[in-house]
Design a protein around this nucleic acid. Structure first.
Lengths: 193, 193, 193, 193
DNA sequence: TATGAATGAGTCTTCATTCAT
DNA sequence: AATGAATGAAGACTCATTCAT
């Protein structure tokens, strides 16, 4: 049961992810999801009672997927610069991915949550990213690879920039070249030549 | 006619602005606007055929309001540093304003426009801001107040950061202190001490 | 507006009364009422948000109608016996009326109210009837027309009997003859020959 | 098979009785019964195809239970007065039992049956009770314990009263004291002091 | 211009009923 | 016999949109 049930949930999450990526959060109806999954109306309700519940699982699945590549052990060996490159590459991927960008849906959802007084998962994901980057910067400072007075502030500043790029890219688009130059500009602020 | 008609439109825009700020774009119905304006259903349709049309005018009105303070003549006299302070102050205001933040509604709208292949006004506003800031930086470079190799790139980077802050503040909140330190961090990159 | 609105409400109440009489309370859907009234789904919702709200007004309208014939002034002149006959006749009418008997709907509704902890209007109507009858008996006692030791108890007993008859008649039917003989049997307990 | 099958049916009937007592007839769904029995949806359908079929068996089981105490042989020895007391006590129990009162469900069901032109079991149960009571009254008349001109009419009148009390008690409640005084009032009409 | 009653399409949600296991 | 996932029909409810006044 659990297996079958899980695989059905997975199907729903996968298809729903595409729907949310295409339409944002609020514009998605249970009917949209039902049609994307090619299941019956009642069938969806066996697993999820609302688009919000589906979206929560979609977000969770995204986070899992994003953390997939982050094999902690192999990270430890790398230089701060390599880690930075990896981090930046990941962010670039997210900024540019067209098909599955949940960024606007995420902000819509977070916004509605705020309006309804619910706690926000979106905030946590953002703060985790800042912490990871700050850590990388710190290591670079220690190893002499980077020259960055205040790692925490710099990490924060960079992440706001990246967040801005994500939103802009998802809504009115950014070329890969533009993203590259922006990211390069940012890391040049502290990478020792 | 025109006067009366305009004042009615203005009423609708004012009230609708509050509604969009509170609920985003997609969640707003014609009924919401009708109720906020305390006019009749039919009355609203005399002026606007859809929430989208209302929102377009809301955006336009916002831009007008934002450019209100920008008296070009008195600008010309000021130092680049003063202009920068003014620009940053304006941005800070926008980041922090709670009641009327249309940022999420804007992105929702831009996102839906993109999905529908319509042209985007949001992009233009963003690019205008970059141009204004770049101009200020350039002037500062020339006068020796700033030291910034690539004004255009810096302006762009800063605006992405600010955009990220706007979105984050609107969804999961930012304290004024946090905003101040972020902005300070940014301008310290190029302001000559 | 109020006039038009009221007449529409009246139409709904009239048609809904038939529906409730035919199907009871719980079995009636908003759709049933819509179809009986030949109005649109949304049209009904302009006036009533649920079958319960419609039913409340149906009950109220019934009570008004039932008290219509009771011209207080002309009552005062009559003998206790005449009043009793009038009362009994009214009850008989209610017991036997086929088309508009709301009795089962009433009890269903009262039952559901009780299950949901809501106050009940049905109880009040019943107690009012007891009070009226007790009053009549008292007058008869005083005038010597009746011989009834405990008017209140007798009124109560009779009303339970009548209530039982109403329910039985509405569900598995009673002939007029049977009703007559029952009512006669009851009043013979205290009417002085 | 039969044994196992019967015990399963018994379980369903027992649990369903509680459900019908709590919600009436029409408001009960197959899902409600399934959940009360903690069996599977399909499982219930092996035994019953509709709530109506379940309810029929629930009614039947009630009648059996009610006639349980009526050991005919030991009845014969008793005086008419003792029999009357027993009868009244049984009725009182039914009037007052809160948890398992099926009275409203019964009337709802009978009412729906009438609307659908089906035969009615409820009527039979009522008439049986009248016959039993008439019989007791007759015996009392013969033994001189009672003085009741028309036993059949009196039995009928009493049963309507009791039916009214059952319905009233189930819907808007009656205190035990009130029930006692009503019953006492009734039997005083014919019991020889 | 302005009103708001009315309509009906669209979505939500719940269940009776079936069926593969 | 028994399960419970799945389906789809039925009813609730909300709104965009129209129209007579």
């Amino acid at each position: 049961m659990s297996d079958k049930s899980d695989s059905k949930k997975q199907l729903i999450i996968d298809k729903a992810t595409e729907v949310f990526a295409a339409k944002g959060f609020k514009a998605v109806t249970m009917k949209d999801i039902v049609e994307a999954c090619q299941i019956s109306r009642g069938g969806l309700y066996l697993y999820y009672a609302s688009t919000e519940e589906v979206f929560k699982d979609v977000l969770e699945a995204q986070e899992l997927k994003e953390s997939d590549g982050k094999n902690v052990e192999e990270m430890l060996d790398k230089s701060a610069y390599d880690l930075l490159l990896w981090f930046i590459k990941e962010q670039k991927k997210e900024i540019l991915k067209r098909k599955n960008s949940l960024i606007v849906a995420k902000y819509e959802y977070a916004f509605l949550c705020k309006a309804n007084g619910k706690p926000e998962a979106v905030k946590n994901a953002f703060e985790t990213a800042i912490a990871v980057l700050a850590n990388i910067l710190e290591r670079g400072n220690e190893s002499g690879e980077f020259d960055c007075e205040n790692s925490a502030a710099m990490a924060c500043s960079i992440m706001y920039s990246i967040e801005g790029m994500k939103v802009c890219a998802a809504t009115f688009g950014m070329s890969e070249k533009k993203v590259d130059s922006e990211l390069l500009f940012m890391i040049n602020q502290f990478v020792v030549a």
